[in-house]
Amino acid sequence: MKHLKLILVFAVVAIGVASYFLFFQKTEQISYLTINATRGNISQEVNATGEVGAIKLVTIGAQVSGQIDTLNVKLGQHVKKGDLIAQINSTTQQNNYDIEKAKLTSYQAQLEAAKIQLTTSQSQYEREQKLYTQKATSKASLEEAESTFASAKSAVAELESQIIQTQIAVNTAEVNLGYTKIVSSLDGTVVSVPVEQGQTLNAATSTPTIVQIADLSNMEILMEISEGDITKVAEGMTVTYSVLSDPDTEFTTTLKSLDPALTTLTNGSYEQGSSTDAAIYYYGRLEVPNAQGKLHIGMTTQNVIKIAHAQNVLVIPATAVHKRDNSEYVNVLNENNQQVEKIITTGLSDSINIEISSGLSEGDKVILSNMSAQDISNSVGSSSKPRMM
């Protein structure tokens, strides 16, 4: 009986173990999220915000003080080089010019009289010299004639010096008189008129601005390129840009230049040793035509700098690429639905997709992620549970 009971116990245990492995230890199923490696185009780009400005913009100011008698332009008016912009009251400048001119005329008349006196005294001195050699005059008479001649020469030299000084004063007064007429220095459009007719200007301490004139036929876009991207870009690269008022229309140009220093230094506000928390940007400059006048000073532009471009290359999502040591690899689902690791070589990346130079073939099922049945169940279960408030 004891042997029969022992056999029955072993039979029950065996049945239990078999049942456990049969019902509870099934092979865990894994679900894979995959994407096929396909061919396509990929571009590496740098995005930057820019501001529109005029390539030629001049500030025309007043170099003399006075009241604005006439203001001949208005905002938005097109002017030609040499056109009269404004007339400053010229009474003071005209009086100064007339005074210096009168002085010059007086000195010139005095010089003519002095030259006649010089000629007379020279003749007298030469005559006294001859008479003295003939012992027909005294030495005192000779010395007196010599002194008179020397004084006449000095008077002529002094008047000639005064005439030179006065001529300079006349020229200065004439220039100051000319400064009362404010004229345009280029062909362009009046973009700023910060003064009004009748306003009094004081040019003693600074140069008051009368108008600003810009050539709007060709514009400049200053792009702010971040410190992290500045080494990727270079002059001559293709740039597409659009304005906020028409974001669907893109224009294409080339990068004209890159400023050698950060924007704060270019703008004249850089302080060495300032906080490193501030973002660092560098200006990239574009020159673009504006024949239709759609671009206005101060507009914001969205710019895309084309760094590199590859066509008809093998492309997969960048998130599927893994790194280990000094190599890159992806996990691929083979024809037996088994996960296989493949070493790859990558090329261009646009942060979303990446070029595969070698290691994969078109159509390969690249694994993006995997999840077991239990993980799926837990995920669904946790998402359906009410949240504790």
Rank of each mutant, 00 (worst) to 15 (best):
H322C: 01
A310D: 04
V288L: 02
L265F: 08
L314Y: 06
V288R: 01
N267S: 09
Q302I: 14
N331L: 14
P260M: 07
S269A: 10
I307D: 08
V304E: 07
E287V: 15
L286R: 06
Q272W: 00
L265H: 08
H309A: 00
K294A: 02
Y281K: 12
Y282E: 04
N336L: 11
A308Q: 12
S327V: 13
E287K: 01
Y283C: 00
H309T: 00
V332T: 10
I307A: 09
T319M: 14
Y281F: 14
K294G: 01
S274D: 11
Q339G: 02
A310H: 11
L295R: 02
Y283T: 08
A320M: 07
I305Q: 04
T276W: 03
Y282F: 14
T266A: 07
K256I: 01
V288S: 04
E271H: 07
N290L: 07
V288F: 04
A310S: 09
N326K: 13
T263D: 03
I297M: 14
Y281A: 05
T266K: 08
K323F: 02
K342A: 02
T301Q: 06
G268H: 12
T300I: 13
N326C: 01
G284H: 08
E328G: 02
E335V: 15
E271Q: 14
Y329V: 05
V315E: 03
N303A: 07
D259S: 13
T254L: 04
S269V: 06
T264Y: 11
T301H: 07
V304P: 01
S275V: 12
I297P: 02
P317V: 07
T301L: 05
L295G: 01
E341M: 14
V332P: 04
I307Q: 09
S274V: 03
V315L: 15
L265S: 12
Y329C: 08
A318C: 00
S274I: 01
L258V: 09
E271D: 10
P260W: 10
V332I: 15
N336A: 13
L314A: 09
I307V: 13
E328K: 12
I297L: 13
A318G: 01
G273L: 06
S327C: 02
K342T: 02
H309L: 05
A279R: 14
A308S: 12
S274G: 10
L265W: 07
L258M: 11
L314F: 06
A320F: 10
N312P: 03
A320C: 09
K323W: 03
V288T: 00
L333P: 03
V315Y: 04
V288P: 01
Q338E: 10
Q338R: 07
S275M: 03
S269D: 12
Q338L: 14
S274H: 11
I316C: 01
N312Q: 07
S269H: 09
N312C: 08
Y329K: 04
D277R: 09
P317W: 15
Q272R: 06
P289I: 06
T252E: 05
R285L: 06
A308N: 13
D277T: 15
Y281G: 01
S269N: 15
N337Q: 09
Y270S: 09
R324Q: 11
A320T: 12
K323Q: 15
E335P: 02
G273A: 10
H309Q: 11
P260H: 12
T266I: 11
Y329N: 02
N326S: 10
V313I: 14
I297N: 11
A278H: 10
A291I: 08
D277L: 07
E287Q: 13
T252K: 07
Q339C: 00
N290I: 12
K306E: 10
H309Y: 15
